[in-house]
Design a protein around this nucleic acid. Sequence first.
DNA 1: CATTTCACCTGGTGGC
DNA 2: TGCCACCAGGTGAAAT
Length: 280
Amino acid sequence: MPELPEVQTIAAGVNARVRGDRITSVWLGSKKEPFKTPASQMQSGLGGRKILEVRRVGKHIVVDLGSQNPSGDRGKTVQAQWIVHLGMTGRLLVSSPEAEKAPHTHATVELRSGKELRFVDPRRFGRLAYYELGQNEAFKGTGDEPLTVTPTRFVDIFKGRKTPIKAALLNQKLLQGVGNIYADESLFRAGIRPRRMAGRLTHAELEKLRVALQTVLREAIALGGSSVSDYVDADGVKGFFQLEHRVYLRTGEPCLACGETIRRILIGGRGTHFCPTCQR
DNA sequence: CATTTCACCTGGTGGC
DNA sequence: TGCCACCAGGTGAAAT
């Protein structure tokens, strides 16, 4: 489910429902797979902490946590962070304890209010991590944020790159948050072929791409993201941006702009959809 | 270092 | 109905 608009939607929904709550206990399923931090360390570290805020960084959900001591967190100092990456099929759900546990539930976080945060992920590509912020820096992610990147910076990011622009858009060390759907959709709106070498795009083309990308991401956030199969937000509500897709998963269908047949190719092993007429 | 390929997983879909 | 190939929102390690 998760590219920037979906992660943004989920983080905002979870934030609205658990901000200010306190973690009472943590259950972690399979002891290894999804955990970048040892399960025992994550479990004891999370226990007792107050949830200060839930937000998005790239494709990560960042849960800012206060003190484990109930009387010691009147300040809003972030002392630890729980990082949730949803992979391809991950979900972060706010549930009531009596709600049936979905298959592939790998973590359950119980809260003082009685609610539960549940991490569900059939394909197990998602990851959980826990960091304490001593001298360590707060989690920043790996690249520039697509929604706020400036024109100059956007040009710099792709300068000299010999990789196809589609692959560069998916590289989280360059821009963080763009995935397969929004890469294809933004390239269509910018009229750029996905195989074009990133470093050979003109400044004008790159600026067109930057604006297209930001427009697509903002529209998708406004519609709650794209529900391609079973994606739902924290409240179990589907997104509607899939209805606005112009090329993604439309192989063989007519281009909505010119009628040409939408083609599908592989770039970096990812299905890539484009209109051969509209995109040059 | 930059780039490319592939393994990691489960589940849904469509052809035969 | 069953079986099989193929496809899917993403990374990160290994090879080139």
